[in-house]
Simulated assay, not measured.
Amino acid sequence: MASSATAQNAGKRERSTTGQAAGYSYCLRTSAGPGDCKYKSFQQCQAALSGTLGSCERNTGPR
């Protein structure tokens, strides 16, 4: 039973950082994949991006 709960929690964390993250307008992308979509503004995304190679893009997932 404990492993089932662990798997469910891992799934929740994964969904919150994918391109499908609902309610967040921008995604920070540093490599191929869905990106880190937890930014409400372009400025927030740019601040997190500072000092890294990547880009901030509009979240095209469902909101």
Rank of each mutant, 00 (worst) to 15 (best):
S3Q: 09
T60R: 04
Y26A: 08
A22H: 01
S31Q: 15
G33E: 03
A2Q: 12
Q20C: 03
D36M: 07
S41G: 02
G51W: 05
S16I: 01
G19I: 01
Q46V: 10
A7M: 08
K38T: 11
T6K: 12
K40G: 14
A2S: 13
S4A: 11
N59C: 12
A21L: 00
G23A: 06
A2V: 15
K12A: 11
G33H: 04
K40R: 11
C45R: 00
F42Q: 12
Q8S: 14
Q43G: 02
Q43L: 06
S3R: 06
R29F: 10
A5K: 02
K38P: 00
G61P: 07
T18E: 12
F42H: 07
T30D: 06
F42I: 03
G51Q: 05
C37D: 01
S31P: 10
A2H: 11
T60A: 07
A21W: 00
K12R: 12
A47F: 01
G51I: 09
G23F: 00
T17G: 05
G19D: 05
L53S: 15
G54F: 07
M1F: 05
G61N: 01
E57F: 07
G33R: 00
P34I: 04
S16R: 07
R15D: 07
A5E: 03
C27I: 11
S3K: 03
L28G: 08
K12Q: 10
Q43A: 15
G23N: 05
G35K: 09
T30K: 11
S50V: 04
T60H: 04
L53G: 14
L53Y: 12
G19V: 05
P62S: 12
M1W: 03
G54N: 07
T17Y: 06
K38E: 11
Q46C: 09
C45D: 06
C37E: 04
T17K: 09
A7R: 13
D36T: 10
Y24K: 09
L28P: 01
Q44S: 12
A32C: 04
Q20D: 01
A21K: 02
G23R: 00
E57V: 15
Q8V: 06
P34C: 11
Y24N: 05
A2T: 14
R29H: 13
C56T: 04
R13W: 04
K40I: 06
S55P: 03
C37H: 04
E57I: 15
L53N: 15
G11K: 08
C56R: 03
Q46T: 09
T6D: 15
R15H: 02
T6Q: 12
C27G: 04
K12G: 01
T30L: 08
G23L: 02
T17A: 05
L53A: 15
A21M: 01
Q8P: 01
